[in-house]
Design a protein around this nucleic acid. Structure first.
Lengths: 167, 167
DNA sequence: TTAAACTTTCAATAATTTTTGAAAATTATA
DNA sequence: TATAATTTTCAAAAATTATTGAAAGTTTAA
């Protein structure tokens, strides 16, 4: 496999994986492109490489910046913005875990707590609702605590924490 | 909060969470409905409760069965099929982890292995592509091994494995 | 067999999400 | 301040995904 082919394959695979996990394809592909780039890229270069429009590029780069995955860089004497992504995979995983926990998991945990703590009226169906949502709540709490632990474990959490579980 | 309100909230929340993670809303809602039901339900009952069509119900129940999350039950003397979901949250998590690993993570790992093992042509950009995809490959392997471990750890893997990390 | 009960399929339609591109806004320089 | 470079916004269009419902298929029982 030649460079260009491998690069295209990587960007395409990353885009598909993103889609499968509820992430916009263009957003995932921009991140993939920056991830393997040897230097920061401009909007123009991203558009060119991925064959997407200016508006699309602008919006998705902005979202990546909101997520804390991409940083804007300015070069002296130049007007345009350069973008680069976090290059360290573990830090990247940490950021994504943090954001998905904050945006998606924690709100669900809050809802599960509310539902599982409604007052029982003694009927079977209410008991079952409370019991099942409580069980989900407990599991979600455990998983989210693990994520929190990883999130705050700045350096090398995969090796220090996960690897010992796997081995 | 009264029963009906809590139930609707749970089904709706589960549907939204599914959507966020790339799972069809109807599929997530059917699973949610079965998860808090005190008894197996028929297609008719699911349609009625969720206000969705027969075709939609049929297709999504079938998918849940493919995933191993829902089971079909037959009652003696009755023609129609009854559906129930796995009620144990940890077993449910195990099944979902197993399926997502098999369908989505393992294929990506294979691609990352292929890309990261292309022959270097000595250029910086090729070196960077190889280096970065190798790093992703290593991380994905670690995470997938953890999932595999959890997957094969039938009983109570959350408490026996994850909890000790969290505490 | 036949027919009734039930399930599946799938083309058409609807809903949602993504993308475009040009106008408006912003920013830096002359 | 004017203007050129660049980015952002957002309504419209395109693409994708989900849903419907009726016809076809299957299964069971009389």
């Amino acid at each position: 496999m030649k460079y260009q082919e491998a690069k295209d394959e990587f960007i395409s695979t990353w885009g598909s994986l993103g889609t499968l996990w509820g992430i916009n394809k263009a957003m995932a592909q921009i991140q993939a492109l920056l991830f393997i780039s040897t230097k920061p890229l401009t909007t123009e270069e991203i558009m060119q490489e991925l064959q997407i429009s200016r508006g699309n590029t602008s919006m998705n780069v902005r979202q990546l910046i909101d997520w804390g995955i991409v940083k804007k860089e300015l070069k002296v004497g130049e007007r345009k913005e350069y973008f680069s992504t976090e290059k360290d995979v573990q830090e990247l995983a940490r950021i994504i875990a943090k954001e998905r926990s904050r945006r998606e998991i924690k709100p669900v945990i809050k809802t599960l707590r509310e539902i599982s703590s409604i007052k029982s009226d003694g009927t079977e169906k209410t008991k079952e609702l409370i019991h099942q949502t409580k069980a989900l709540y407990d599991l979600a709490q455990t998983v989210d605590s693990l994520l929190d632990k990883a999130i705050h474990h700045k350096q090398n959490w995969v090796n220090s924490t996960l690897l010992k579980l796997v081995k």
